[in-house]
């Protein structure tokens, strides 16, 4: 993520930028509102108390995870075959799902951002539906579409002998279904912010629309695409509902980390905590990678 890219507003600067903003604020306080002077010191109790409870509520579970972590057994836990199997499958399937999301989602985002056709708004809403759809429902829907007796799945099975549910491919499909909308939304936003006149300039130089997209637009929106990909990857990594519904829970084949955590919690809580710590570490890493993009948004 190049901080010098011209495309997404607010990317530049990073934490330093936000720190500068925070320092600058009191100086300009006088011009803002009459209450500006008392703004920092005197947060009213009815707001302060719930806010503190909110912070506690969000952080306490994470803290508990750290407190109860079996630190001594952790190396053993993390090197057990089951953990590695699940972790490997998770990373692999999340990466594959991200690749698939990129391959399909970037062109889709371009279509939504750069073309105008009747029903575009509706299509956009439908495409992003998985963002709000309960993942389990997504899994059921995938079964009905691509399952052995599904609308399309029965033909895949009959004609090509392809079975998707309860396979690793099924895991990838379930994760893609849930994660791709994140990528589409992110890339579409970046595309809308990018200056379409660069594409016109490319056209006057003899570039077809596709060449212009490939050689001009894509490099310009690369930071947005990367952010979308990281977001989609993180979402795919944590996917549970659609995966367990569509792909089941077979160790080594479809049992990803979240599934393994859930299963381990039943009979080996220490293993569940260890696995959770790994996922937490990954999440923190993702957040760190995206900090420029989000932490400065405030």
């Amino acid at each position: 993520m190049s901080p010098s890219s011209p495309v997404p507003a607010g990317v530049e600067g990073g934490p330093a930028g936000s720190a500068r903003g925070r320092r600058a604020r009191p100086a300009g306080g006088g011009r803002e509102r009459p209450t500006g002077g008392g703004r920092r010191a005197g947060a009213p109790l009815p707001l302060l108390l719930p806010a503190l409870v909110g912070i506690l509520f969000l952080l306490l579970p994470l803290l508990a995870l750290l407190i109860r972590a079996p630190w001594r057994d952790l190396p053993d836990q993390l090197t057990s075959a089951q953990v590695w199997q699940a972790l490997r499958l998770s990373l692999l399937s999340a990466t594959a799902a991200t690749a698939l999301s990129l391959a399909l989602g970037v062109p889709l985002a371009w279509l939504l951002a750069r073309t105008d056709f009747p029903g575009r708004g509706l299509l956009r809403a439908l495409v992003t539906l998985p963002l709000v759809l309960p993942p389990v429902v997504g899994g059921v829907a995938l079964l009905l579409a691509l399952g052995r007796n599904g609308v399309v799945g029965q033909w895949l099975d009959a004609w090509f002998g392809i079975t998707l549910p309860f396979t690793t491919t099924g895991v990838v499909l379930a994760e893609t279904f849930v994660a791709m909308p994140f990528l589409v939304i992110s890339v579409e936003g970046t595309l809308r912010a990018a200056d379409p006149r660069y594409e016109e300039a490319a056209a006057t130089l003899g570039a077809s629309r596709f060449t212009a997209f490939r050689r001009v637009t894509l490099p310009l929106i690369a930071p947005g695409v990367l952010a979308g990909a990281v977001l989609a990857w993180a979402r795919a990594l944590g996917e549970f509902g659609a995966t367990i519904t569509f792909a089941g829970n077979f160790p080594g084949r479809t049992q990803t980390m979240p599934l393994a955590v859930y299963l381990a919690l039943q009979n080996d809580p220490a293993a569940a905590i260890a696995l959770s710590l790994v996922l937490l570490a990954v999440s923190v890493a993702v957040l760190a990678a995206l900090r420029d993009r989000w932490l400065t948004a405030s």
């Binding site: 130089l205 490099p219 310009l220």
Partner: peptide, 27 residues
């Protein structure tokens, strides 16, 4: 536009920011 033998110098030039001057001209 891509087939027309027409060259354009845009008002704010619209040089591709990710390419060097050379690659802009080579485009």
């Amino acid at each position: 536009p891509e087939s027309r033998p027409v060259g354009v110098v845009f008002q704010d030039y619209l040089l591709f920011p990710h390419l060097t001057a050379l690659d802009n001209v080579a485009f």
